[in-house]
């Protein structure tokens, strides 16, 4: 598949606020992206605006505070999707198409049951939660992520295992919890751990390098098939050197570290 043929659906509802950056990030790696309101996918709009999920190659859930974070972060967005286009989403994932959720988007994927989805595509009810940060407050700070995925995740297929990426975090509820026994080791066994928070020299992160207290310092995970990935930090905010923390101190490239995630998924699709 050629880059210019890749169509990205950046889906939003009221309160989503990172859709511009997300759509732009995919444009920067050559794809065609469109910001689509959920109502357009549900058909609750003028017929000329109606969109169908099957016409897209990548689905992206951007960050923000969808539906005002009422009930729980991501819960209302997830419920509306499940009720209206639950089957379409399942088919999209089963077809192996990539799905990305960043920050609130990660919370939505967890509430939808698409992550961690240890036993299949989509669990009936959530089997994990992204819960309040240990600090009890919104954490907006730099994070260093280490790619710990062995080979499965399509969003890191072009990033060597163990490589460190700079990526800003900005969230109040990012602590990944689950009632599944031995949750972290199961994720590790399945190669579902994608990113871990580490210190700048790659060591074990404690607060504030792990901004939320996530067990195993987990910042991002994928589904067992590797085509659905959710992460709390924002790669779409570091697409160029100018938003990297060290850009005035001799940053090594014109690109920002976040771009690696977007080029990876495009490389994966180029082989399709």
């Amino acid at each position: 598949m050629k880059a210019e043929d890749v169509r990205v659906c950046v889906v939003r509802i009221e309160g989503t606020n990172c859709e511009d950056e997300m759509a732009n990030a995919f444009e920067m790696v050559g794809a065609k992206s469109e910001k689509v309101h959920l109502k357009q996918l549900l058909g609750q709009c003028d017929p000329s605006l109606k969109r169908s999920l099957e016409d897209y190659d990548i689905l992206a859930f951007p960050g923000g505070f969808s539906a005002g974070d009422y009930v729980r972060a991501g819960a209302i967005f997830a419920s509306r999707i499940k009720a209206g286009i639950g089957k379409d989403i399942r088919d999209f994932v089963d077809a192996g198409k990539p799905v990305l959720g960043v920050c609130n988007g990660f919370q939505i994927l967890v509430e939808l049951g698409l992550l961690p989805a240890l036993d299949g595509t989509m669990s009936e009810e959530p089997t994990a939660a992204l819960y309040n940060n240990d600090s009890g407050r919104f954490e907006c700070r730099p994070s260093i992520l280490r790619n710990d995925n062995r080979s499965k995740c399509v969003f890191t297929c072009d990033i060597p295992k163990g490589e460190l990426l700079y990526c800003p975090s900005a969230h109040g509820e990012g602590k990944l919890m689950s009632n599944i026994p031995n949750f972290v080791s199961k994720l590790e066994e399945n190669d579902q751990v994608v990113f871990r928070y580490v210190t700048p020299d790659g060591g074990r992160a404690t607060y504030p390098w792990n901004p939320n207290g996530s067990p195993g310092d987990i910042a991002g995970i994928c589904n067992p098939a590797g085509n659905v990935m959710g992460m709390m930090p924002h790669p779409e905010r570091v697409m160029t050197a100018y938003t990297m923390d060290d850009w005035t101190r001799g940053h090594r490239s014109e690109d920002g570290d976040g771009k690696r995630i977007f080029t990876s998924v495009m490389k994966y699709l180029s082989k399709k």
Partner: peptide
């Protein structure tokens, strides 16, 4: 509660 209001994990 099952469908929306509570997340059984927490």
């Amino acid at each position: 509660c099952k469908k929306l209001l509570a997340n059984p994990v927490v």
